[in-house]
């Protein structure tokens, strides 16, 4: 237990810091994922064959290839791509991309692919009657979108988004290639140095469980709150 104490001799503070890092990178990844999902949802719902094809390609590939490979590909690919773009602008130096940003980006890509499916399903699940009713009340354009469509989509998508969040949270355990010290990397370091993998893996499991349970509670609270009057 001494090993888990706080301070310079124990690993407790490092583990806690890593836990906060996992949470922070998951939040950023999830936010990025949802924002990135929006254009893909629009593309999937559009009438254009090409736009649909692009969006389907994105979601199929990202959801069909192991997360570890996606993370490696985007980890190495993103810096190559950024340097390529920089060259076009005539910038010849090297750009360091912060490990946190790369980590959030990689997991965010995965979250985006799953969120796209969730959001698309939610938009399609809005009862047609509601939209027709709104129109007959004279609600259209922006008011229809922001007043009816978006709130309804979010409400319907909430459980699905909760699942994607859990997925993203767990997938952050795979970003240790970026060098970001999240729970998994810290566990690896600590168990390597102390030769006590059992203790640190149990600690890691408890930290992940705390994060997933805690966030699950928030999602359930939100679901109950926003489904008032529907159930």
């Amino acid at each position: 237990m001494e090993l888990l104490s706080f301070g310079d001799t124990g690993w407790g503070d490092e583990m806690l810091r890593a836990c906060i890092m996992t949470f922070a990178v998951s939040v950023c990844a999830m936010s990025f994922g949802i924002i990135l999902a929006i254009p893909f949802v629009i593309m999937k719902l559009s009438n254009s064959f090409i736009l649909k094809l692009i969006a389907n390609f994105f979601t199929t590939v990202v959801r069909g290839v192991p997360e570890l490979l996606i993370i490696y590909l985007f980890f190495f690919g993103s810096s190559a791509a950024i340097m390529f773009i920089a060259r076009i602008f005539g910038y010849n130096g090297y750009i360091e991309i912060n490990a946190f940003i790369v980590g959030a980006f990689c997991v965010g890509i995965i979250a985006a692919a799953y969120s796209t499916e969730v959001l698309r399903g939610a938009v399609l699940a809005i009862p047609k009657g509601q939209i027709e009713a709104s129109k007959s009340f004279g609600i259209k354009g922006k008011r229809l979108l922001f007043g009816i469509m978006i709130p309804q989509t979010l409400r319907i998508a909430l459980p699905g988004i909760g699942n994607v969040w859990q997925l993203a949270l767990k997938d952050t355990s795979l970003i240790s290639v970026t060098g970001l010290v999240e729970i998994m990397r810290q566990t690896h370091i600590s168990s390597g140095v102390t030769r006590q993998p059992f203790l640190f893996l149990i600690t890691a499991a408890i930290l992940y469980l705390t994060l997933t349970t805690f966030s699950n509670k928030i999602f359930i609270f939100a679901e109950n709150k926003y489904s008032k009057g529907y159930v």
Binding site: A86, F89, G90, N92, G93, Y94, I95, E96, I97
Partner: peptide, 16 residues
Amino acid sequence: LFAIIASLFFVPLTLS
């Protein structure tokens, strides 16, 4: 311009 935009997203920026 690129350096400024880049520095908003990526830190730190080094010139070779």
